[in-house]
Design a binder for these strands. Sequence first.
DNA 1: TGTACATCAGTGAACGCGCGTTCACTGATGTAC
DNA 2: TGTACATCAGTGAACGCGCGTTCACTGATGTAC
Lengths: 230, 230
Amino acid sequence: MMRYDSGMTTGIKIRPPSPRRGQAPQGRKPVITREDLITAALKLVGPNRSVSTLSLREVAREAGIAPNSFYRHFRDVDELAIALIDQAGRSLRKIIGEARYRAASGRSIVRSSVETFMEQLSADEKLLHIVLREGTVGSEAFKQAVERELHSFEEELCVDLIRLAELNKLPIYEPQLVAKAITRLVFAMGTAAMDLPPDRHPELIEDMVKILRMIMVGTQTMAREGIVAD
Amino acid sequence: MMRYDSGMTTGIKIRPPSPRRGQAPQGRKPVITREDLITAALKLVGPNRSVSTLSLREVAREAGIAPNSFYRHFRDVDELAIALIDQAGRSLRKIIGEARYRAASGRSIVRSSVETFMEQLSADEKLLHIVLREGTVGSEAFKQAVERELHSFEEELCVDLIRLAELNKLPIYEPQLVAKAITRLVFAMGTAAMDLPPDRHPELIEDMVKILRMIMVGTQTMAREGIVAD
DNA sequence: TGTACATCAGTGAACGCGCGTTCACTGATGTAC
DNA sequence: TGTACATCAGTGAACGCGCGTTCACTGATGTAC
């Protein structure tokens, strides 16, 4: 039943496509932006809070706006979460770039990459939390977004591994699997690391370096000696 | 202010310690048990639901009891979650036992262990979901419970690795790190596997076997040739 | 065997709370003329 | 420059909902005598 003859009450009003699309926006200037909301959300996620548990009202409160103002920027919290994962992905790519840069400087590529990763872990902690955690819980959409990021990480690493092998005239067995192993290991151990106090990081870095060394020595030995995997 | 002179209204009644402790329980027979509630909770968790998101009312509904009856069995949902993780841990230990049994049968220990793990993943799917996911989200208590399980897995694996190495007169470099690498990798890749259709599991098993082979070859080569990790 | 009683698993109703979402609005800004 | 107007970011109040938790209770079971 309708309350008085209000005509079609089809719920929320859909804004008709603006005839001025592509031009400068009209009307009141935004006082907060999508980025402000993302920042507010980042303040709320932490070691025990995943993006999926954030509430719209909570984020709005943190950003200092009324709950319904949220809808001016995102369709719902899920859309905000996707934006967060995207930003985390960008942060990840920055890490890869940095690791590549350092690797080119001639030091041990394994050690320098691991150290870079752990440094960024401390710096962009919140963002990486999101990638590392949201991949295992959260909606299908979140998980796919995270998988995309991990995959691109893996592929760039694979290219690097092949180039490195050629450079040093070392053989390599199944480089894409090596890249996969390294990626998954570093991320798994990185996730665990985030729950440890930073003073235990050096020890963890040593462990990771040794493990990655084993994998590198393993792939080289197997390529050289043609060992089949069984 | 108190509503009529009801005396001390200090909230929920704490049952005084029974003078009949250790004897058969008196009173009405339970129609549902802790186990029934655990079963109900297991029905609810799935690829996109972590234990932390279960609500008391939801679990009670699934079990077919009134919401407040839940309190007869658990202090709160967190206590139920801990029970779930414990049970998952038991399931894990069963996997290790099975893997050990098969390994003794003389086939490749790496392949048979990975295959066992993946089989159990399909069978006890829900329980393993819990271990694999709750370790990255969830409360501090959950994470510690999961870390405990992973650690015991790691230690048993380490013992096996050393025994295996001695048996075959093969050297091994840093066995506890090898165990750690294998554990974290298998769990990380296992988590990812749960989101894939089962027909892609064989391919994944091949990948995992090859990667673990690399690690084994790596640790042996390093032990033999005394390569330092840098 | 019968009876009074203690125990205690499970219940239905109610509470206050935070949530997502909708509504009709306000008023600052930019545009057209 | 001035004025009328369209745009639209942000608002306060209200809604219905599911939640955890508490209350006083019911009635089945086992025990004591």
